[in-house]
Nucleic acid binder design. Sequence first.
DNA 1: GACAATATGCTCAATCTGAGCATTAGTTGG
DNA 2: CCAACTAATGCTCAGATTGAGCATATTGTC
Lengths: 318, 318
Amino acid sequence: MTSPIVIGLSAVIVAADESSAYVLATRHGGDATGLPHGLFDPAGHRTFELGLRDWVQAQTGFEPGYVEQLYTFGDRGRELPRADLAEAPADARHISVGYLGLAPERPDTTGFDAIWRDWYDYFPWEDHRGGRPQMIDTTLAPLLMDWANAGGATAPRRVNRASAAFGLNGAPWLEERTLERYELLYECGVAPEAARDETVEDAPRLPASIVGAPMLSDHRRILATAIGRLRGKIKYRPVVFELAPERFTLFQLQQTVESILGGLLHKQNFRRALDKSGLVEATGQFETSTGGRPAEYYRYRRGEHALGGVIGVATPRK
Amino acid sequence: MTSPIVIGLSAVIVAADESSAYVLATRHGGDATGLPHGLFDPAGHRTFELGLRDWVQAQTGFEPGYVEQLYTFGDRGRELPRADLAEAPADARHISVGYLGLAPERPDTTGFDAIWRDWYDYFPWEDHRGGRPQMIDTTLAPLLMDWANAGGATAPRRVNRASAAFGLNGAPWLEERTLERYELLYECGVAPEAARDETVEDAPRLPASIVGAPMLSDHRRILATAIGRLRGKIKYRPVVFELAPERFTLFQLQQTVESILGGLLHKQNFRRALDKSGLVEATGQFETSTGGRPAEYYRYRRGEHALGGVIGVATPRK
DNA sequence: GACAATATGCTCAATCTGAGCATTAGTTGG
DNA sequence: CCAACTAATGCTCAGATTGAGCATATTGTC
């Protein structure tokens, strides 16, 4: 006879604007944050997605539009917090299915134990909009290298992994490798969750401004997966428009993309690419100024471009 | 109290050569084929991947190298075959986690109820190496359009979906949209599995040479997911080398890629791209001829190119 | 009216792509 | 041994794309 299984559904609900990208986080007990989540009900939920929508709605009041599955985590040892499993049998095995959802704005969450939080609070090393964060080279890299060198036979592999992930030793920084970076920090004990899960001993204790705010259970891992996926996808599918308001100026749109990517883009080339893609159209309305020449408002041309439309978002600036 | 859950693990093990791409299929009872699969054991398996490897090994004798998770299916109604669930409670909910594995050759499966099968047996419309298969326009497209037009209010959306997926009405054929194509054929009842699952009535009965060989439970859906994923990935990650032998000529490698993509590539440009990528190196050995000028054998340069290496496989031929 | 602050336009060289022609090095049949 | 044939490999070229930077247009402010 198989022993019981419980399936947790977790949602990374993302919003973004000119200033940053945000996740919908829930407060659990103290000030620990987690993702909206709950158990899949095999009797009641027809699909995972419907179950997920239920939970998000119940915990945050938000009704997700676009939703996609990210990954299913099943490793023993990185599971749901005990407290959330009151109903489940004590010997149950915990599986966790992560989802990504996009929100065109940040709706009010008053009345719910939920807040919109800057996702770079959780991953400070991921924000390169103001240049490569110093902590990478001053703090993280040395710790990673210590860990790598302690790896015995696997040391060379570890050095390679760390270099490729964090852009060390001449390797380029690739924004979509968010999960790999987080996993490395977890493995080497820098992520506070590692100490909590007792997968490492005598882990260094560093401030959240460097190692990021921890999350419940494996939620930060799911968040990292979501960021990586979104960063990859935004380059070849018109997903920004799920995050942008109805009307936007081109620069607003660019900054929204930059918030997601965590890096700056060359303005004129961003426009050129967008132009060629045919994804947006001018509205004839102009922004009533904030300083300089008024920017025209554009809107997304839904449909049409069944798939042709791609924002060649590439060209980095600076 | 939650009702019981069982998790099925299914593996798409892929191999490819100059002639075609293959999947490792298992025979279950009659001549129905399925993927190697089995139930996840929450007590015994530390991770999904380990459980999966156990099952594949036990059912086919093959030990997968490269493995990656594809997707977790949880819809009620498209579940595991009853027979495989003898041990599970009658009211259990069935979840299915699909994996993709790659094999550098097709090892012998004698002694096991498993065979390597051409994946285009399952998806005849996916092979465009000899030109666009006629059945798409003569048989599938009309059926899809009938179904679309019967969609009432959703008719326009259905027409769009079908057009974008199958390259109708001027839309381009995009090889990685394999899953979408299969799902459409399932929805419109052309895939025999739909009739079996009783999701449609009076479905047309067509030969397997047109609608492809059916598979157990949702295995063909998982296979479609795998093909799509692999086709996408082969363009930006050096995965072909997981499928190629130690030594290969450039044309063999190209044909292996073509087998996966289901389309032909421009030879000289394929070489140029490969050349620039720095992924391969000449061995100095030559093929002892099959007709013309002998081709040099190359080998994959593992490692090094931490991620830079990309085969700009794009340029289609013909 | 000069200046600051933006948005938007335009240019240019370097590189990349898609496509095709040309040459090389074998095999095979007289 | 030569001619014909088959593949592999080499090379060229125009057009498109990309990365970068300079130039101009419109506002509000002092």
